[in-house]
Amino acid sequence: MDSNDSTATRYTVPSADSVHEVEIKRSRFITYLYRVESEVQAREAIAALRKTHFDARHHCSAFILGADRMTQRSNDDGEPSGTAGIPMLDALAKRDTPDGSPLSDILAVVVRYFGGIKLGAGGLVRAYSDSVSQALDAATLIPRQRLRIFTLDADHALAPRYENDLRAAGYQMEATVWEAEHAVLHLGIEDTDATAAQLAEFIATLTSGAGTARPTATKWVDIA
């Protein structure tokens, strides 16, 4: 995803796919959470679960995509309209995350094995919403941030100190390239002009005015 695709600079994603099951009035609700980055990927995962759980009555789904969460879809898959997909989508969209950033690039699929007892419309809404919420409680969620990448040239002898000081100051350091004449440090910052200005001041102090950090690109990274 390119930085030009959105105005958001940070959101939250699942760190890995997961599954969580609850039983409500003899019905089994099996919630699968997937990390997805496109509608095609989401629909492929749903289709795969239909094959795995071919004997289940319902395979309800909801997903949110993109840093700005512009793509949101849900499907009741045979449950009464509005009792499954939308409550699932609401559970994803309104999820509180550790750093307060919105949850996205996530697919939830709830596979229901009917247990013979009807839950009614209100019961279904609660069941599907709670199933997704409990699955999110059990999942590991991590921030994903858009970084502005800079390079900094440094003498071979000075590069290790520069790298250590930058890392200690909280900058995201990537692999240093050791060229014949000098080393090239690569670092990432939050993709804002204010953070870039702070970096420029830090580099000026670090190098006694001799070094300049040059912007090269932007990219999205998971912050573990």
Rank of each mutant, 00 (worst) to 15 (best):
M1N: 04
D2V: 11
D5I: 11
T7Y: 02
R10W: 06
Y11I: 03
V13H: 05
V13I: 13
D17C: 12
H20C: 15
E23I: 15
K25S: 15
R26E: 09
T31A: 05
Y32H: 13
L33T: 09
E39P: 14
A42Y: 05
R43N: 04
L49W: 02
R50P: 13
F54T: 11
D55H: 07
H59W: 07
L65R: 02
G66T: 06
M70P: 03
M70K: 12
T71N: 05
Q72C: 12
Q72Y: 06
R73N: 15
N75C: 12
P80Y: 06
P80L: 07
P80E: 06
G82L: 06
A84P: 02
G85Q: 01
I86F: 13
M88D: 01
L89A: 06
L89I: 08
L89P: 08
D90N: 06
L92P: 03
R95G: 02
P98I: 08
P102D: 11
S104T: 03
L107E: 11
F114K: 10
F114T: 04
G116S: 12
G116D: 10
K118D: 13
G120K: 04
G120T: 09
G123S: 12
L124Q: 11
V125F: 02
R126L: 11
R126C: 08
D130K: 15
V132M: 11
Q134P: 11
D137K: 14
P143L: 12
R148I: 06
R148A: 04
F150V: 05
L152S: 03
L152V: 03
A154E: 01
L158K: 14
A159G: 03
A159R: 03
P160V: 04
N164P: 13
D165H: 14
D165W: 15
L166A: 01
L166K: 00
A168C: 09
A169M: 05
G170W: 13
G170M: 11
M173R: 03
E174S: 00
E174P: 00
E174N: 03
A175G: 12
V177C: 07
W178L: 10
E179D: 13
A180T: 11
L185C: 10
I189E: 09
E190R: 15
E190P: 14
A194G: 07
L199A: 03
L199P: 00
A204G: 15
S208H: 13
S208N: 12
G211F: 06
T216F: 09
A217E: 14
V221Y: 09
V221P: 04
